[in-house]
């Protein structure tokens, strides 16, 4: 039932916080190279859904098939979680760079400690990915010496250095000053062009329209509508989607 290119398929993902349903059975199919953009009002469950994919939150129900390997979320083992994390990268809203490490060390830490890569090889790769995100002059800077946009680009470099199958972006530009948003989106656009498989939670509708292969509109923990950017942005089929898009376009 999956196409042979299937990279990630999620079936009936459910999550409760206490007695409150946050995710009411979410499904998602994506192929290698797809860029899925999740949109929806705050509190709709977008971020929780993203965090459930690599078990930063423990989902209650559902099945995840990632790169051909099936995981049942309910009684998942620690080892399985680390296999999922090995195949996914995560970019945080507040960057979450290791504050005691330089930009380069932020990128190499996972390579050396978790992937057991030799230090020299890790540093070579680290410099390469930092160059890729335009930070070739910031290797030895600590996070607090970098602007928000630069920190987030280090965050992206840290994720791609591990060469994950899927990169998860949790509102990567929401904490940034407006004039710094562009540089981060530019890096993400490059990644999309390279054919990286990405899931992006964002409020940047123009960006979504440009890079997404698929847009999913979430509300109250369920998928209201999904489709190509043209379908969702030009002719949304659901009233709730139309309402949401109107409300964000008014924001200016």
């Amino acid at each position: 039932m999956f196409s042979t290119n299937n990279m990630l398929s999620i079936t009936n993902l459910q999550k409760k916080f206490g007695s409150q349903n946050v995710l009411n059975g979410i499904d998602l199919q994506m192929d290698k190279g797809d860029v899925v953009v999740l949109i929806g009002p705050s509190g709709s469950g977008k971020t929780t859904f993203l965090r459930c994919i690599n078990f930063l939150e423990q989902p209650d129900e559902g099945i995840i098939v990632l790169d051909g390997e099936q995981f049942s979320v309910k009684d998942i083992q620690k080892k399985e979680i680390s296999r999922i994390r090995r195949k996914t990268g995560f970019v945080f809203q507040n960057y979450n760079l290791f504050r005691n490490k330089t930009a380069l060390q932020n990128v190499t830490e996972g390579l050396i400690v978790a992937r057991k890569m030799k230090k020299t090889a890790a540093e070579k790769l680290g410099r390469q990915v930092l160059d890729q995100v335009g930070l070739s002059d910031r290797y030895d800077y600590y996070p607090h010496q970098l602007s928000g946009g630069q920190q987030q680009r280090v965050g992206i470099a840290r994720a791609i250095a591990l060469n994950p199958e899927v990169i998860l972006f949790d509102e990567p530009t929401s904490a940034l000053d407006p004039e710094l948003v562009g540089e981060v989106l530019a890096v993400m656009r490059d990644l999309a062009r390279e054919g990286r498989t990405m899931i992006i939670v964002t409020h940047e509708m123009n960006f979504a329209r440009q890079v997404a292969t698929k847009v999913i509109f979430l509300d109250h923990g369920e998928v209201v509508e999904e489709g190509t950017p043209e379908q969702i942005f030009e002719e949304p089929g659901e009233e709730r989607t139309r309402q949401f898009l109107r409300s964000v376009s008014h924001r200016g």
């Binding site: 680390s82 979450n96 290791f98 830490e109 996972g110 978790a114 591990l162």
Partner: peptide
């Protein structure tokens, strides 16, 4: 800081001692 460590594949003690 913990979450970032988990996401790059480190385990509990590695994150505790290194980060």
């Amino acid at each position: 800081q913990w979450e970032a460590g988990y996401c790059v594949g480190m385990d509990y003690w590695q994150i505790l001692f290194r980060i």
